[in-house]
């Protein structure tokens, strides 16, 4: 009888244990601020014209892209992986609130690097539980294809003129397709200075995104040559490669 009582008492203790965990750890928040621009000029949708290195003048009507799998890295290479299921975001130039991502419950410490994904990593998706919950968000932002079970990693559309010609639409939708075309990119950036996370503070990381790089990055892409890039085994990987170079960290204002 006595043994049973002890056993039950033990059970009571065990069953409540996980509630106490974490009390000793301190967490803070971080705000990621995505700052889309072209050659250091802020983007004004529909209005401002920009010129790429192929001497084509363009305006942008839509600019959206998916950011995922955010990881914060300390100087000693220790990584904090933000919960994957909560780690998918659509950055939409037309919605200022979408360009500020708040990451909660980051363990305190000094972080020196950030790593994130452009698009959705097919090798992980949908295997990590909860990741399919990004579907409604992607859907609201028209970032889903409806003929394929996949995502548009970027939706970049507008009009361009080349060599004084007439105004023509351009459209760039890049994603991964099937098992053959994987355009997911992983981006690692050094923070301008070590970022201290502590309780009740929300420091900001500015991520400058130079959209001009989509045309003029590792590869030079001319709209005259190709003004519609969707499921494209030649051009889509070139766009993705260019995109991998368009992010840099900046100093918050």
């Amino acid at each position: 009888m006595k043994n049973i009582i002890i056993l039950f008492a033990f059970l009571v203790v065990i069953s409540c244990k996980n509630d106490d965990e974490g009390a000793t750890k301190t967490f803070g928040n971080i705000e990621l601020n995505f700052n889309n621009s072209i050659d250091n000029t802020p983007i004004v949708l529909e209005e401002t014209s920009y010129t790429n290195k192929s001497n084509e003048t363009y305006t942008i009507s839509e600019l959206k892209y998916i950011i995922s799998n955010i990881v914060l890295i300390k100087a000693n290479k220790e990584e904090f992986k933000y919960p994957v299921a909560d780690s998918y975001f659509v950055i939409n130039e037309a919605k200022s609130e979408s360009k500020k991502i708040t990451l909660n419950s980051i363990p305190e410490g000094e972080y020196t690097k950030i790593r994130f994904g452009f698009g959705v990593d097919q090798s992980k998706y949908p295997f990590e539980s909860g990741t399919a919950n990004f579907i409604p968000t992607a859907e609201e932002n028209q970032m889903l294809w409806n003929w394929a079970a996949g995502y548009k990693f970027i939706k970049f559309e507008g009009m361009y003129t080349a060599n004084g010609g007439s105004n023509t639409d351009f459209l760039i939708h890049v994603g991964s397709h099937g098992t053959t075309l994987d355009n997911y990119q992983e981006i690692t950036l050094e923070l301008p200075s070590a970022l201290t996370i502590e309780k009740s503070k929300s420091p900001e990381i500015v991520i400058n995104v130079d959209i001009a790089k989509i045309f003029d990055g590792i590869n030079t892409l001319s709209l005259e040559q190709k003004n519609s890039i969707q499921v494209d085994p030649v051009y889509a990987p070139k766009v993705a490669e260019n995109i991998s170079t368009m992010f840099s960290t900046g100093v918050s204002n």
Binding site: Q122, Y125, P126, E139, N146, A149
Partner: peptide
């Protein structure tokens, strides 16, 4: 082969 995982396949018929 537009869906590479069974869990994702229903996205196509539901949204098409």
């Amino acid at each position: 082969g537009a869906a590479i995982h069974l869990d994702l396949q229903p996205i196509i018929p539901i949204t098409a």
